[in-house]
Simulated assay, not measured.
Amino acid sequence: MSAHGPATPVRGAPCWVSLMARDLDSAQEFYSAVLGWRFRPASLGEEFSVAVAEGQPVAGIGALAQSFQVAVAWTSYFAVENADETADKIRERGGTVAVGPLKLGPGRAALAADPDGATFGFWEGQTLAWSVGRGAAPALLELRTRDAFAAAIFYAEVFGWASGDPDGCDVTYEHDQVLVREGTHTVATLRGGAVESAPDPRVRPRWHVHFPVNEIEKVTAATVAAGGTVTPVTPTADGEGRQAVIRDPDGGLFTVTSY
């Protein structure tokens, strides 16, 4: 992930997304061809880069999948004040901490999983100026899980959502989904079973990253040409746009969305 910049992120809010890749050059080649990103070196070392679109930071790529012995995947990171305390909270509430917290540049990072197995990261320190749904950043971070209400309780206890702190995130439950807001701005969505309904065993819990695109057919064609796979284009959950799920050649899964 990125670790240098002028911004102090809101506690508990998503603060970055990063691809855990096997090879930096091949990953950059794919995402440049499909999404038109350019890349610049990150402050964390030669294994990291920052994707840039329209002059703004979008996401990070780190060639760490092999060294950490994890699958290639897009990871959503959340801002915390103390990484060690956050790790303790995760373990106390039935989650796992797989990597870290470890020192990365001027900050500290860790990889974890919630009780249902959805992987996420957390970051202690400053970040680049970046927020979900604004500018070139991802349009949406979405947790698809078996029980959105139970997941919301876990993340609220870990990240301090809905604590009443004006410097934190609030949570609302609308139409069988949990919305995480920074002020009036939605920064994450948790979707799953309705309140008091049985969890859906068919759902594989996962945080999904949605990147905005203008011409979705052009993007899906470029995906196939670059060696990735893509699902058929479908309407978005709100019915106002279209989306497709893409898997890069190494298995990294993400969604592209156009409105």
Rank of each mutant, 00 (worst) to 15 (best):
R191F: 06
E182H: 10
Y173M: 13
T172N: 15
R181T: 11
L179C: 08
H175K: 15
G164N: 07
V178R: 06
S163G: 12
H185R: 14
Y155D: 03
V180Y: 02
T172A: 15
F154L: 11
P166M: 09
V178F: 00
D176Q: 12
H185Q: 06
S163P: 02
G183L: 11
V187E: 03
A156H: 00
G160A: 11
E157L: 10
T186S: 15
T184P: 03
E174V: 12
T186L: 08
V180M: 10
E174W: 10
T186F: 02
V158P: 00
F159P: 01
Q177F: 07
W161P: 02
D170Q: 15
A188P: 00
H175T: 14
R181M: 03
D170I: 14
P166V: 14
G160N: 11
Y155H: 07
P166N: 13
S163D: 10
Y155W: 08
A162Y: 04
Y173I: 09
T189G: 11
A188Q: 03
E157K: 06
D167Y: 08
V158G: 09
D170V: 11
D176E: 13
A162I: 03
R191M: 14
V171W: 06
G160F: 07
D165W: 10
W161E: 05
A162M: 10
T186E: 15
D167W: 02
G168N: 12
Y173P: 00
T184G: 12
L190A: 02
Q177G: 02
I153F: 00
Y173D: 14
A188K: 09
Q177V: 08
C169K: 06
T189A: 14
A156L: 02
W161Q: 11
V187P: 01
C169D: 09
Y173S: 13
L179M: 12
V187K: 02
G160I: 01
Y173G: 08
D170N: 11
A188D: 05
C169R: 14
E182F: 05
P166S: 08
V178Q: 09
D176Y: 04
G160C: 01
G160P: 00
Y155F: 13
G183I: 12
T186M: 15
S163V: 01
I153T: 00
H175L: 13
H185S: 06
V187G: 01
V180D: 03
R191G: 10
I153S: 05
V171I: 14
H175C: 12
H185T: 05
